[in-house]
Simulated scan of single mutants.
Amino acid sequence: MNHYKMTNEKALRYLLAGIASLAVVHALGRFSFTPLLPYFIRDNMLTISQGADLATVNYLGYLIGALLAVRYSGPKFIKKCLVIGLLGNVLVTIAQCFVPQFESLLLLRFLNGITNGIVFVLAPALLLEWFITNNKPQLSGLVYFGVAGGLLAGGLLVDSTATFFQAEQRWIPVAIISLLLATYSITQFVNIQVERPDYKDKDQRLTHNSALFDRRSTPLFLSYIGAGLGYILPMTFLPTLAHDMMSEDSIWITNVWAITSFSCLISIPVWNWIGHRFGDRFALIYTYILQALGVASVLLNPSGTGVIACAILVGNGFLGSVMCTQRLARYFQPHQGPRLSAALIAIYAGSQLIGPWLAKLWIEHGGTLLQSFVVGLGAFIWGLFWTWRTPKT
């Protein structure tokens, strides 16, 4: 009984550490840039084109970080690299508080992406192995509360402190919260031990001898391209689009990111339950449908109503896509572990890298930000098509 209680206590601490780490690197360090961008534009610190460049270089760094995580996901390196990545991410966020120059921000957003990619791969992968080893796999999906909760906290933090800061100083509240959360996560991660001696040699042979892309998993990997490309335009530019389409005194301008984030937050236990009850493939199909409807709503109804519908539906579905894809892939290839997670994140990062770049090209050739969302709609349809082709068992 004491052992059971101790295991439950460790599970809670480690889960909270994982939640905090994803909040730091992905929600605060990365996606706080989305609600901050309209303020940076208003402060004449950045233009919309420069914002797209910063988003693109950040996603390039994210891709490189995920690929580095493939190399350093082994048991000898995973904790050390996770801690270094988390600490580096916080230091980059702190540095952004003092840097208004666009050229310097390009480097910092690139470094933010690298450290984010490392932590976003290694933290869930390490926790997933620990939860499976301790017979608690149902908790693995809950780590993504860090993304949703951090998105909500970051948006509220940015908007509630907007009147107190200008330009680069708007990063200060984000940096303070990130430092506190990262400190807690690091103190917990250093204590995690994952040992499966009965299977270690077998798992290593299987991992090295097995291909990541096989008949069952290839359609799932292809669908994940649609997930990454589809969600990145709303999650990068939706608040900016709201500023363009609504009057300055509209209550929705300052709340569109909070609505998106809250939709993410409440959807996590729902998709977690649907995936366990009806299967992750079933849940994944409906995450793509909801997100496609969200992007279509703002394209067909370019008004405040369309923006809010997009915020709710895309926010509701995108973390479900991440969670269900990760679990379904591991179900197909249970011996791959962190290597599989890293490959999925690399695909996700590579596809989302294209979105802001395409938006920038479209705007520079006379198009509008809204019209560029057509790319996102097509991406979600692509993801839905390949998910249908993913085997049911």
Rank of each mutant, 00 (worst) to 15 (best):
Ile132Ala: 14
Ala167Trp: 03
Phe120Cys: 13
Leu212Asp: 02
Thr133Asn: 14
Tyr14His: 10
Ala359Gln: 10
Gly29Tyr: 08
Ser267Lys: 10
Val314Ser: 07
Gly378Asn: 08
Gly230Trp: 07
Phe120Asn: 14
Ser21Arg: 01
Gln371Thr: 09
Gln352Pro: 00
Lys360Asp: 01
Leu299Gly: 11
Pro334Tyr: 08
Gly304Gln: 14
Ile312Phe: 08
Pro302Ser: 08
Leu111Gln: 06
Leu180Trp: 06
Arg389Tyr: 11
Ser140Thr: 15
Lys10Glu: 11
Ala349Met: 03
Gly149Asp: 02
Gly228Asn: 10
Leu233Ile: 13
Leu122Met: 12
Gln326Phe: 15
Ile84Pro: 01
Pro219Glu: 07
Phe278Thr: 01
Gln333Met: 15
Ile274Ala: 05
Pro35Asp: 06
Gln352Ala: 05
Leu12Trp: 14
Val70Glu: 06
Ala258Trp: 05
Tyr4Met: 05
Ile266Leu: 15
Ala23Glu: 02
Leu377Pro: 02
Lys5Leu: 15
Lys136Asp: 01
Pro239Glu: 09
Leu212Lys: 08
Asp214Phe: 04
Asn134Cys: 03
Ser351Gln: 12
Trp357Arg: 11
Leu212Phe: 12
Gly315Cys: 11
Ala296Trp: 04
Lys392Arg: 15
Gly304Tyr: 07
Ser247Pro: 00
Trp362His: 14
Arg216Trp: 09
Phe40Ile: 13
Cys310Pro: 04
Gly117Leu: 11
Gln96Glu: 14
Leu67Thr: 09
Ala359His: 05
Arg205Gly: 00
Val158Phe: 12
Met235Asp: 00
Gly150Ser: 05
Trp252Ile: 05
Val90Lys: 05
Thr254Gln: 12
Ala55His: 02
Arg109Gln: 08
Gln291Arg: 01
Ala283Tyr: 07
Tyr286Trp: 15
Gly149Glu: 00
Val143His: 14
Thr93Phe: 01
Val147His: 03
Pro302Val: 04
His276Ile: 06
Gln101Trp: 09
Phe145Glu: 02
Trp273Thr: 15
Leu157His: 10
Pro197His: 04
Tyr224Ala: 04
Tyr231Lys: 01
